[in-house]
Computed example of a mutant assay.
Amino acid sequence: MNGVDQGRLRRLASESSVRDAHLGREIDLALDRCFARIRVQVSGRVGVGKSTVRAVVEAALSESVGFGDAVDITEAAAVDVPRSPDPILDGDVVVHVLAGGVQAADVEVLSSVATAVAVLAKADTLDDASDTVARSAATVGVPVLPLMATVARSLSRGEPSSFADLRREAASLPDDAVLTPDRFALAAPDAESGRRRRVLVDQVEMAGVRLLVGKLRADPTVDDATLRLMLADASGVRPVLDAVGRCIDGIRTDREGRLLHRLTELCAEHPRVSEEIERYLATDEAVLAVMGSALRAVGEAREHGQPLAAAVEWHRRARSASNPDFCRAAVAISRGYLRVHAS
């Protein structure tokens, strides 16, 4: 991943310990806090599909470089259960699962956690998912992402393994056969085909079946890989995973900013033995990590145009700022852009 290099800083801590054992321990403690595994909690009311959403997110992150080896994903107990205490939602990121109408408990969860992703699971079962998403987002006050969770989970497992049966039968399948699971199974030519159709429904729900039938009727030659990509796109899994990934990246950026701030404090506390730390804080790695943290603190994205012009603009903002925190952030951002310009 981009950002500070843990191995490099662990070596710095070890070298510092030789000169000052207390300094080395303090660096190690700061590193432990920064590089602790990021905790993602999946929450929601009873029956909303938390387990399926957790499985989808877990499968995707386990395959992502820089995520799977540094993130723990857990499923919290259900919220809003009568005569039961609500779970403690103290994860670094909370993925809160909704289904259908939003309840007061959902609003409370999403307003009480610092970093949350709201997911409308079972979106394929709703008559008007877009309207439900819009109403849910207006109620909870954060964006709500629709997800066909069963489809996404099946695809993450490599299921369905083949669309051969549906490819053969799509053209002759009556329109009313794709209205319900029972109609779909009963319209099969034999009992074994009916069983396989029920398995397909379990894997992609009827919404997925209808998408597949429509695509195969339009183009019977389309290959299985294209059909899987179509289902993945329709499932909404990519926006959900992107949102979770951005939250994780944000947590890392904030932690790195706090780490480098702590190293700066340690330089002031141990001026006689902190030369190596000071040299590290002057490196491109550290300067750009501080810049990233400062940009997040002021709610700005990194620009990819002219770094020198950006450095001048942030220097101007720093000089005119009345808020000292904003001023410090602007100085760090200006310094970062100057380093980008020089590199």
Rank of each mutant, 00 (worst) to 15 (best):
A225G: 14
A225Q: 13
T226D: 15
T226I: 09
T226K: 05
L227Y: 12
L227S: 04
R228N: 12
L229I: 00
M230R: 13
M230S: 15
L231W: 11
L231A: 06
A232V: 05
D233F: 08
D233G: 10
D233K: 13
A234G: 01
A234Y: 08
S235E: 06
S235T: 05
G236R: 03
G236Q: 03
V237G: 00
R238D: 13
R238G: 13
P239K: 08
P239M: 08
V240W: 02
L241A: 07
D242I: 12
D242A: 15
A243E: 15
V244A: 08
G245C: 06
G245N: 03
G245R: 10
R246P: 00
R246N: 10
C247F: 03
C247W: 02
C247P: 02
I248V: 14
I248F: 03
D249N: 15
D249M: 11
G250Y: 07
G250C: 01
G250A: 10
I251M: 11
I251S: 09
R252C: 01
R252F: 00
T253Y: 04
T253R: 11
T253W: 01
T253G: 09
D254N: 00
R255A: 05
R255F: 05
R255E: 10
E256R: 02
E256S: 01
G257D: 04
G257Q: 03
G257W: 11
R258A: 13
L259I: 11
L259D: 01
L259E: 13
L259G: 02
L260H: 12
L260C: 14
L260D: 06
H261Q: 15
H261A: 15
H261F: 09
R262Y: 09
R262E: 14
R262N: 04
L263G: 04
L263E: 00
L263S: 06
T264C: 02
T264I: 10
E265K: 07
E265N: 07
L266E: 09
L266G: 01
C267D: 05
A268E: 11
A268F: 03
A268K: 11
E269R: 14
H270Q: 11
H270A: 03
P271R: 03
R272K: 10
R272V: 06
R272C: 08
V273Y: 02
V273R: 09
V273P: 01
V273K: 11
S274N: 01
S274Q: 01
